[in-house]
Structure formats: structure tokens, C-alpha cells
Amino acid sequence: MRRLALNPDRFAVADCLVHQPPIRMVERLLAIDDHRARCALTVRDNNPFIDARNELPGWVGVELMAQAIALFAGYHCLLRDEAVRVGYLLGSRQYSCHTSAFGVGSELLIEIEQEYHNEGMGLFYCRILHGDTELASARLNTYQAPLSNE
């Protein structure tokens, strides 16, 4: 992914998301522009989804991708001086995960790219990487409700 143009440090991650700990898993916004974002997190042993083997199951990758999209959307709400709004994951297309689990201590990179957006409906291509290795990918369909005064 080439260099993205907006300042990722302009807003705190916590201010861009309606998710609260311990469900909020995305920790850092590394890069963002009008159509893409790159986020990161460290898999922690206090994550509520950690299983009996002390791993984060691969299926949680869809939630990580959704949170990266929410962070992207929340950032752009704040950029427009709007309140951060709830978004909805409507479905996924072709979720492919090349690992059964993400190990505790793993540094994960989540890249999202908006392929379509119209009247709150969005389609995003998403990837989860560990270093240069792609661990999961999907296309996610989302909906963000309009401002309550619209």
C-alpha cells in the first residue's frame, strides 16, 4: 500500500470508535486517506475472544476488519466535525483465513480499502497481515446510519 495522505495522529483511536475495551481491539491508526486505512494491534492475552489454547481464533479476523472500517469511518466523521456514528457489518464476501488462530503477542496489520460507498452503504476490501505475510482477506459490506438530524 502506498503512502496515505491524511495525518493518522489527528484523532485518538478511542475517539474514532464507539467500541469500548475490552471489545475494542484495534489499537493504532498508522495511515489513512479518503479511501484507505492501515491499522495495527497486538494480540493480548486479556482479549475476551482468546480461546483455551491462549489464541485468538481466526474467525475473529472479520471483527478486526470491521473495527478497522469503523475506525476509518469515525476518523472521517470527526474530520467533518460530525459525531462518530454506529456502523453495521451487513456481511462478508470470500473471507479467507490462512491460519486457524492469531497467537498472543502477534503484531497484526489491518489494511482496508473502500471500493464502493453510496448513501451509507459501503464495500471494503480488507487484509490482515503479520509482517509481509497475508493471514486473512475479505470483502465486507457495511452500513453507516445517517446523522440523527437528517
Rank of each mutant, 00 (worst) to 15 (best):
R3T: 15
A5K: 14
A5L: 15
D9N: 14
V13L: 13
D15V: 05
D15I: 05
L17A: 01
H19E: 11
H19Y: 15
P21V: 09
R24G: 07
M25C: 07
M25R: 05
V26Q: 04
R28Y: 06
R28N: 05
R28A: 04
A31V: 08
I32T: 00
I32M: 03
I32A: 01
D34Q: 14
A37S: 14
A37C: 14
R38K: 14
L41V: 03
N47I: 03
N47K: 04
F49E: 02
F49Q: 03
F49W: 14
D51I: 10
D51G: 08
N54P: 03
E55R: 15
P57W: 12
V60M: 10
V62S: 06
Q67Y: 10
A70I: 06
L71T: 00
F72W: 14
G74I: 02
Y75W: 10
Y75A: 00
C77I: 03
C77V: 02
L79A: 15
L79Q: 15
E82W: 09
V86F: 15
V86L: 15
Y88C: 02
G91F: 04
G91N: 08
R93I: 13
Y95I: 06
Y95F: 15
Y95W: 10
S96D: 14
C97N: 12
T99M: 01
A101D: 05
G103C: 10
E107M: 08
E111L: 10
E113R: 07
Q114C: 12
E115N: 14
N118E: 13
M121I: 14
M121K: 11
Y125M: 09
C126E: 04
R127M: 02
G131I: 03
T133Q: 15
S137C: 13
A138L: 03
L140W: 02
P146V: 12
L147I: 08
L147D: 13
E150K: 06
E150S: 12
